[in-house]
Amino acid sequence: VLTEFAIPAGKVYLSPVIGRHGGMPVAWTIGTSPNAALSNGMPPDACSTLKDGEKPVIHSGRGRHYRWPEWIRIRKDNNLTRSMSARGCSPDNAAAEGFFGRIKQELFHKRSFAGVTMDEFVDMLDDYMVWYRDKRIKTEFGMSIMDRRRELGLVA
Protein backbone atom coordinates (compact mmCIF):
# COMPACT_ATOMS: atom_id res chain seq x y z
CA VAL A 1 0.00 0.00 0.00
CA LEU A 2 1.31 3.45 -0.73
CA THR A 3 0.32 7.03 -0.05
CA GLU A 4 0.99 10.35 -1.74
CA PHE A 5 2.17 13.66 -0.30
CA ALA A 6 1.61 16.67 -2.56
CA ILE A 7 3.80 19.65 -1.72
CA PRO A 8 4.37 22.77 -3.83
CA ALA A 9 7.60 21.27 -5.23
CA GLY A 10 5.83 18.09 -6.44
CA LYS A 11 4.59 14.72 -5.25
CA VAL A 12 6.33 12.27 -2.93
CA TYR A 13 5.19 8.68 -2.39
CA LEU A 14 5.68 6.43 0.63
CA SER A 15 5.40 2.64 0.47
CA PRO A 16 5.80 1.04 3.92
CA VAL A 17 5.48 -2.39 5.43
CA ILE A 18 3.52 -1.94 8.67
CA GLY A 19 3.46 -4.69 11.27
CA ARG A 20 -0.12 -5.56 12.19
CA HIS A 21 0.82 -6.15 15.82
CA GLY A 22 2.08 -2.87 17.22
CA GLY A 23 1.77 -0.84 14.04
CA MET A 24 5.52 -0.41 13.62
CA PRO A 25 6.88 0.53 10.21
CA VAL A 26 9.20 -2.40 9.50
CA ALA A 27 10.56 -1.13 6.19
CA TRP A 28 9.72 1.58 3.68
CA THR A 29 10.67 3.18 0.41
CA ILE A 30 10.17 6.82 -0.52
CA GLY A 31 10.17 8.13 -4.08
CA THR A 32 8.84 10.73 -6.46
CA SER A 33 6.96 8.26 -8.63
CA PRO A 34 4.51 5.47 -7.72
CA ASN A 35 6.48 2.98 -9.79
CA ALA A 36 7.77 -0.58 -9.52
CA ALA A 37 10.99 0.47 -7.78
CA LEU A 38 8.93 2.05 -4.99
CA SER A 39 6.79 -1.02 -4.29
CA ASN A 40 9.57 -3.54 -4.95
CA GLY A 41 12.04 -1.87 -2.60
CA MET A 42 10.47 -2.53 0.76
CA PRO A 43 9.68 -6.31 0.82
CA PRO A 44 13.37 -7.39 0.79
CA ASP A 45 14.15 -4.85 3.54
CA ALA A 46 11.23 -6.13 5.62
CA CYS A 47 12.21 -9.76 5.02
CA SER A 48 15.74 -9.06 6.26
CA THR A 49 14.21 -8.54 9.73
CA LEU A 50 12.57 -11.99 9.84
CA LYS A 51 13.88 -14.77 12.04
CA ASP A 52 14.55 -18.22 10.60
CA GLY A 53 11.33 -20.05 9.87
CA GLU A 54 9.09 -16.99 10.01
CA LYS A 55 6.70 -16.88 7.07
CA PRO A 56 4.45 -13.84 7.44
CA VAL A 57 1.37 -12.96 5.48
CA ILE A 58 1.76 -9.76 3.50
CA HIS A 59 -1.43 -7.79 3.08
CA SER A 60 -1.57 -5.57 0.04
CA GLY A 61 -4.01 -3.61 -2.00
CA ARG A 62 -5.17 -4.73 -5.41
CA GLY A 63 -3.26 -1.99 -7.22
CA ARG A 64 -0.99 -2.67 -10.16
CA HIS A 65 2.02 -2.23 -7.88
CA TYR A 66 1.27 -5.59 -6.28
CA ARG A 67 0.59 -7.48 -9.49
CA TRP A 68 3.84 -6.65 -11.28
CA PRO A 69 5.92 -9.74 -12.08
CA GLU A 70 8.95 -8.50 -10.13
CA TRP A 71 6.88 -7.88 -6.97
CA ILE A 72 5.36 -11.34 -7.27
CA ARG A 73 8.86 -12.85 -7.73
CA ILE A 74 10.15 -11.02 -4.63
CA ARG A 75 7.15 -12.27 -2.65
CA LYS A 76 7.69 -15.87 -3.79
CA ASP A 77 11.47 -15.74 -3.25
CA ASN A 78 10.87 -14.66 0.36
CA ASN A 79 8.09 -17.21 1.04
CA LEU A 80 5.52 -14.51 1.72
CA THR A 81 1.86 -15.43 1.58
CA ARG A 82 -0.19 -12.69 -0.06
CA SER A 83 -3.61 -11.66 1.20
CA MET A 84 -5.89 -9.21 -0.58
CA SER A 85 -9.38 -8.16 0.43
CA ALA A 86 -12.31 -7.82 -1.91
CA ARG A 87 -12.67 -4.57 -3.83
CA GLY A 88 -13.94 -1.70 -1.74
CA CYS A 89 -13.29 -3.63 1.49
CA SER A 90 -9.82 -3.28 2.88
CA PRO A 91 -9.51 -4.76 6.37
CA ASP A 92 -6.20 -6.30 5.33
CA ASN A 93 -4.86 -2.78 4.77
CA ALA A 94 -6.19 -1.40 8.06
CA ALA A 95 -2.75 -1.22 9.71
CA ALA A 96 -1.30 0.74 6.79
CA GLU A 97 -4.33 2.98 6.34
CA GLY A 98 -4.37 3.81 10.06
CA PHE A 99 -0.66 4.57 9.88
CA PHE A 100 -1.19 6.87 6.88
CA GLY A 101 -3.81 8.80 8.84
CA ARG A 102 -1.43 9.26 11.77
CA ILE A 103 1.53 10.31 9.66
CA LYS A 104 -0.54 12.83 7.71
CA GLN A 105 -2.01 14.24 10.93
CA GLU A 106 1.32 14.46 12.77
CA LEU A 107 3.70 15.43 9.97
CA PHE A 108 1.79 16.74 7.01
CA HIS A 109 -1.58 18.44 7.52
CA LYS A 110 -1.78 22.07 8.64
CA ARG A 111 1.85 22.71 7.68
CA SER A 112 3.22 24.76 4.85
CA PHE A 113 5.88 23.17 2.71
CA ALA A 114 6.44 26.30 0.61
CA GLY A 115 10.14 26.54 -0.18
CA VAL A 116 10.78 22.91 0.76
CA THR A 117 12.52 20.99 -2.04
CA MET A 118 11.63 17.44 -2.98
CA ASP A 119 14.91 16.17 -1.50
CA GLU A 120 14.31 18.08 1.75
CA PHE A 121 10.80 16.64 2.06
CA VAL A 122 12.05 13.10 1.34
CA ASP A 123 14.62 13.56 4.14
CA MET A 124 11.91 14.92 6.50
CA LEU A 125 9.67 11.96 5.72
CA ASP A 126 12.46 9.44 6.23
CA ASP A 127 13.45 11.10 9.52
CA TYR A 128 9.81 10.90 10.65
CA MET A 129 9.66 7.20 9.77
CA VAL A 130 12.77 6.48 11.84
CA TRP A 131 11.41 8.54 14.75
CA TYR A 132 8.04 6.78 14.53
CA ARG A 133 9.67 3.36 14.57
CA ASP A 134 12.27 4.05 17.27
CA LYS A 135 11.04 6.85 19.55
CA ARG A 136 7.32 7.62 19.25
CA ILE A 137 5.49 6.61 22.41
CA LYS A 138 2.55 4.28 21.85
CA THR A 139 0.04 5.01 24.61
CA GLU A 140 -1.10 1.40 24.77
CA PHE A 141 2.45 0.30 25.69
CA GLY A 142 3.63 3.40 27.58
CA MET A 143 6.83 3.21 25.54
CA SER A 144 8.00 3.23 21.95
CA ILE A 145 7.12 0.28 19.74
CA MET A 146 10.82 -0.60 19.45
CA ASP A 147 11.26 -0.52 23.24
CA ARG A 148 8.21 -2.78 23.60
CA ARG A 149 9.68 -5.21 21.08
CA ARG A 150 12.95 -5.21 23.05
CA GLU A 151 11.03 -5.81 26.30
CA LEU A 152 9.33 -8.83 24.71
CA GLY A 153 12.67 -10.17 23.43
CA LEU A 154 11.68 -9.75 19.79
CA VAL A 155 14.75 -7.62 18.95
CA ALA A 156 18.18 -7.23 20.50
Rank of each mutant, 00 (worst) to 15 (best):
N40C: 15
R150Y: 09
G61S: 12
K76E: 11
P16D: 04
K138C: 09
V17R: 10
K11C: 09
R149F: 10
G41D: 09
G10M: 07
K110A: 02
Y128V: 04
E140G: 00
D77F: 04
R20M: 12
A114N: 12
F108I: 07
M84S: 03
H109T: 00
P43N: 06
A6L: 05
I18P: 07
I145K: 00
R20G: 10
T81Y: 06
I145S: 15
L152D: 05
G31R: 09
W131R: 13
F100T: 12
P43H: 09
T49K: 13
V57L: 13
L2S: 12
K76F: 02
D77Q: 12
L38H: 02
G41N: 08
V122N: 01
I145P: 02
A95T: 06
G61I: 01
S90K: 07
N35K: 04
P91R: 13
K76W: 00
G63W: 07
W131A: 13
D52E: 12
M84W: 01
R73Y: 10
D147M: 11
E140F: 04
L154F: 14
V17M: 14
I18H: 08
T32C: 10
A114V: 15
W68M: 05
T32H: 03
A94H: 11
S85M: 07
E54P: 08
F5H: 02
M146K: 09
A36Q: 14
V116P: 02
D127G: 13
S144H: 06
S90M: 01
G98Y: 05
L80E: 10
F100I: 11
L152Y: 00
R149M: 14
P34V: 05
R102T: 15
R102P: 00
S48V: 11
T29H: 02
D119A: 15
T3G: 11
T117N: 05
V26S: 01
D134P: 02
M24A: 13
K11Y: 00
A94E: 06
R102E: 13
N93Q: 08
H109K: 04
E151F: 03
R20W: 08
S144D: 12
P44A: 08
I137K: 01
D92C: 10
K110E: 07
K104M: 09
D52Q: 06
I30P: 05
A46L: 09
R75D: 00
G142V: 07
F5D: 05
V12I: 08
A6S: 15
E97T: 08
G98F: 04
D126E: 15
S48E: 10
K11N: 08
E120L: 02
T81A: 11
P43F: 12
R111D: 08
A156T: 14
I18Y: 06
D134N: 12
A86C: 04
E151L: 13
W71D: 03
R75Q: 14
E97W: 01
T49W: 02
D147N: 12
V12W: 00
H59T: 07
P43D: 05
S144W: 00
T29A: 10
Q105H: 11
L125Q: 06
E54F: 03
R136H: 06
D134Q: 06
R20T: 11
M118T: 14
V116F: 09
